[in-house]
Design a protein around this nucleic acid. Sequence first.
DNA 1: TCGTGCCGTGAACGCGCTCTCACGGGCCTC
DNA 2: GAGGCCCGTGAGAGCGCGTTCACGGCACGA
Lengths: 340, 340
Amino acid sequence: MTEIDRQRRPGPRIEEVARLAGVSKSTVSRVINDEPYVSAKARDAVHTAITHLKYSPNQAARSLAGSKANAIALIVSEQSGRVLGDPFFAGVLRGVHAELTGRQIQLLLMLSQPEDHDDLVGYLASGHVDGALLVSLHGDDPLPRRLQEIGLPVVAGGRPLGSGSIPFVDSDNFTGGLDAARHLVSLGRTRIATVAGPRDMAAGLDRLSGWRRGLGEARLPADLVAEADFTPESGARAMSDLLDRAPDVDAVFVAADIIALGVLQVLHARGKRVPEDVAVVGFDDSLLASTATPPLTTVRQDVEQLGRTMTWRLLGELAGEDGLPPSLLLPTSLVRRASA
Amino acid sequence: MTEIDRQRRPGPRIEEVARLAGVSKSTVSRVINDEPYVSAKARDAVHTAITHLKYSPNQAARSLAGSKANAIALIVSEQSGRVLGDPFFAGVLRGVHAELTGRQIQLLLMLSQPEDHDDLVGYLASGHVDGALLVSLHGDDPLPRRLQEIGLPVVAGGRPLGSGSIPFVDSDNFTGGLDAARHLVSLGRTRIATVAGPRDMAAGLDRLSGWRRGLGEARLPADLVAEADFTPESGARAMSDLLDRAPDVDAVFVAADIIALGVLQVLHARGKRVPEDVAVVGFDDSLLASTATPPLTTVRQDVEQLGRTMTWRLLGELAGEDGLPPSLLLPTSLVRRASA
DNA sequence: TCGTGCCGTGAACGCGCTCTCACGGGCCTC
DNA sequence: GAGGCCCGTGAGAGCGCGTTCACGGCACGA
């Protein structure tokens, strides 16, 4: 039988800091929270006492007394947690983290499947976090609205589909798709297809719309559309389908680099040279793009910036700032490589 | 001036649950924490009251009163946060999360560069988490030891280099490298090179050792060694180097799929056919392996299982279980595809 | 000189929960 | 029948901090 020794956490308490600094707990608290009405002398004394004792305030006590959590949640709403492997997610995560460092705010990572939404909402409702970042929303997921209803500030990464007005930050997917199409047109291609992303995500729809507009400008038919989710396999299937329907296809805009991987495989297998026979433009400018064969021309989106911006927006709201933009669109840019 | 209304979090308190259930706070607490000495009747009453009121206990208060955080940290110790994009990290994260669901334990994600170690240690020292998972340790990083010193249970993902005895979970990299080498030998290859991983990580060293042993068994010289970090670019450089040194190389074991991407590129550029001229075996069996051209024969490691096991080990320690293995090695297996 | 602010400070209460302790009733044992 | 033990329960004391409130000192104007 192991005796689990229940004992107090080590380390000094605010009390000891106060004693060493020769002031009261209140004053120490004021210094820690950077409040006014503390003399320079007291402030210094407290600071030296803190560094001397290596004092670090107890987060739980702060949360309890201050009735705020000093933490935000990053909620990944995905069936299989597949997104986690996505460079997109990694970039967002890095951005969020970058924006959080220095502030005393922790990042709780929560994965949630629709079945678990009730639990999640209940959990978040009782004040465990001060706000939430939502990533990888599908379709008309009610989660963001439910979180808003319980009064939790929320910012989505990627435009949420469906009604309601959830603040979001997204890349300018429409312009990205448009640029891709224009680029292919400028190359003299005339049978331009697209492998679009899933219809239940704005990223899929908006990139498709941009592509449509681009072909429209050039008075080209926008009939060659296939759909894929964010896997190479589905991309392969989509490209096969496209080739069957239009053997003369000479260009394709693919809604994500990872999908383009499958597209390239099929093109290769079917004896089509890239870019000579078929030009390919991807989306994301992930690591995959530069290492693909041939290296992929792609639409770059700055996912890390997306993470930073989401966090900035959320923290702004938490700080009670006003004049915050409800939503933000981040620019994309075309990166030319060998495939188009 | 925005009035930030400081007010109590919404939702019921334990008190109200107690009143509705007709018992005392103590009993409610016992039910919540699944403790014995509660009658079935009381238990039921409390449960219905909880669901009725949608009660969810305040985490901060629990932590404060129970002097435990109900949270663990996942610490990623990396220079640029580059790991985040790694499928390896994603897998681990998924595993950790899977193991955590159901228990009432939150996951704090912390990135830490060596410069920030002091802050990190200070933070963790004051009881914000009950334990820590360490990932992507380089060289003889003092972080795990420092965390042990402050009494924080720690489990590393990947064998930590350097002295000290930190519990860890790792894939059996040695056997993986050995199997890869044996496989290449069994193919009749005789000039077998390796692109090893970084020398400051056990994954790099152990896979290299395994490869060495495999060649030794076959009485083949183990002289063709180049080193790369986990990027395609460094892999390309390493392979170029290898080809310059030994144009007759007919096989190469690459310590990671992502490195193999660069290797394949160079091989292709230099007019070597894979696998006819040069057989390639990767490591990880990540998404990259199956979508590479040609699809990569690779040593599979189950990173999700690694994440789960790390978490299981840590939670076991937190629960005071004894007889826990200090460290664990997870099996690897060779996945045959086209490249070897 | 006395009032009127404002700045700086400390005492003490409370955040919501866990945990210790004490107590009573039922059952078994001698 | 008395003593003991175990189960089930509740009262209440903190956990470590933020925050309110009151108070004293000082500068200023009247």
